[in-house]
Amino acid sequence: MMNKVNKKILLGVILFAFYILVHVLINTGIIDSYYELNLVIIGINIILAVSLNLITGFTGQFSLGHAAFMSMGAYTSAILTAKFNQPFILALLLSGVVASVAGILIGIPTLRLKGDYLAIATLGFGEIVRVIAINTDYIGGAIGFNDIPRYTNWTWIFASVLVTILLIKRFLNSYHGRACIAIREDEIAAESMGVNTTYYKVLAFAIGAFFAGTAGSLYANYFYFIKPDSFGFMKSIDILVIVVFGGIGSILGSVIGAISLSIISLFLQGIPELRMVIYSVILFVIMVYRHKGILGKREFKIFKSRKKNRKKVEFNVGAISK
């Protein structure tokens, strides 16, 4: 029991040390702006992948509209910070809320669809958002939105990634999260056990969209400039690739997937003509030899007791607080 608490403290210390280390390296210039840029991209990809995993991996709803939620967050944040000079924390949270509300509105009619049909519907939603953004002059239309203040830095990225993972993990370890997983496993059985499937599908969609929105906000306030085409269909596919690559239904998998795919494409930038070829081959090989993704459904094993039971750990902590 104590062992468990110690491990949590140890994990916290390691994460904090990592944060400080990178922070110092950035400030002393050892990590230059190019590597910092990649750190930011990795962080944003982790948030996107983990939040999409909640929708697709855990709740089993195949969504191709994740980039649209990101784009809504990005534009919300851009408008709030560039046009209204609002503080970044407010823009970040509101970006999530706007994306989340969009998730609910689009989720209620489409989530009665299943599998491929849902994928097509969410794909359509993504295109609608993109086309609306292109045709709205207020946010720059097809030219894009310029002069967004840069607020995103290592601290914001690190904190956002941590909060995203922590909250989604906590959600999944509650009865709400179990209901979502049960829907993926067998919708009819879940319903007959009292799970309101529509409610939980929309809920998972809303939570996933929220974090995608914050990822968009972090993106907009780092790159000074956003345009509708950055959040098109291909961006949704990129996120989905990370999720599938890391392992559908594994949070750690999404994290590792985001990191490794970002690093792979970073290294391949040296050979631009072969970049997409090699990238595709790597994806191909992974899918052939590990079709459940790098981690399958496995979770944070390193930080767990050797016993197989993950719930037990949770509940022992509960017993102490009781």
């Binding site: 909250l167 959600f171 179990r178 067998d186």
Partner: peptide, 28 residues
Amino acid sequence: RLFKDMTVLDNILIGFHNRFKYGIGSAF
């Protein structure tokens, strides 16, 4: 119709679903 990729314990816990009352905020 079991939840095949969930543990035996988690299957039972889904059975308790409608007896849980705490909200999402509480879970977060």
